[in-house]
Design a protein around this nucleic acid. Sequence first.
DNA 1: ATCTCATATGAGACAAGATCGCAACCCGTG
DNA 2: CACGGGTTGCGATCTTGTCTCATATGAGAT
Lengths: 134, 134
Amino acid sequence: MTLQRRAVLEVLLARDDHPTADQVVEDLAARGVSGVSRATVFRALELFAERGIVARVCHPGAAARYEVRTHRHHHLVCDVCGKITDFDDDALSALQLPDLGSGGFRARDFSVHVRGLCADCAREQDHELRNEEP
Amino acid sequence: MTLQRRAVLEVLLARDDHPTADQVVEDLAARGVSGVSRATVFRALELFAERGIVARVCHPGAAARYEVRTHRHHHLVCDVCGKITDFDDDALSALQLPDLGSGGFRARDFSVHVRGLCADCAREQDHELRNEEP
DNA sequence: ATCTCATATGAGACAAGATCGCAACCCGTG
DNA sequence: CACGGGTTGCGATCTTGTCTCATATGAGAT
C-alpha cells in the first residue's frame, strides 16, 4: 500500500458517485496531491478491483467507472443517456443467491441492475410521441 | 429497418455471448456481408439499445458489449479477468422490483450481477497463495 | 413504377480512454 | 551500504468510440 494508492482510495471514498479514472486524476490534482500519474491511477484502480476493494460499475459510456464498495446497493441504468443512479432496497439486498459452486465461480457480492429510462429521458420520449401524433 | 441493421441483429442473435461492436463487425465480414462500416454498427447497436431491443452488458473491460434480450437472465462477472458468464435462475428472475416510480425512473427489465472470481482466476489465485506460503 | 425527402450509410479523420515498456525510484533486508 | 522486488512516471502506442459530409437508401405518396 503506497502513498499514491492510498490517495486514490481516499478520493474514491470522498465521492458517492462513480468516477472515471480521469475524474480521479482530476480530483487528486484538485486536492493538491501533485504528480500521481494517469497510469498509476489506472493500475491502482485495476488492482483494487481485483482485490474486491472497489467495484467496476456497469458503464454504458466509453469510460470505465469505479466505486468503493461500502454497503450493498443497486443500480438504475438509463438505456438512452446512460446515466447510472444508485438505489437501496433492503429486500433486494437480502436476496439469497443460488448456489453457483457448480461452475466454480466464487461469488464476492452482487447487485441488481435495472435497465430502463431515467426520468429525463422518459419525459423527452413522451414529448416526441406527442409531437408525432398530435 | 435497413439491411445493415438487420444484419447486425442477425449476428447478435447468432451468438449467445456478449460481443463488442468490433466483434460484430468481424462477424459481419466473416459472413460475407461486405461493407457494413464500423460507424454503422456502432450506430445500430446504440439505436437498438435505446429501443430496448438489445442490452448493453455490464462490461468491466474497455469495450462496450451487447446482447440480444431474449429471456431474462443474470451475469457472473469476474473481477480479475473480466469474463462475463450468463446464468439462469428462476427465483431471481421472478423477483418483484420495488416501486421506483418515485424517482421517475421507468424500468424495462433487470438482471442480477454477481461479482467475484471465475473458476480459472480462483484456481490461479489459490496457486499463488500456495507458492507464497508453502 | 416513379418521385420526393428525410434518414441512414461509408470512409476516414479525430478524440478519448486505456495500456505498455522501460528507466528511475523507494523501501525493507541481509 | 548494496541488493532486489515491486512501484512509479513518462511517453509512445493501441483501442474504442464519435464526427463530418457527400452519397445512397428506404418508405410512403402519387
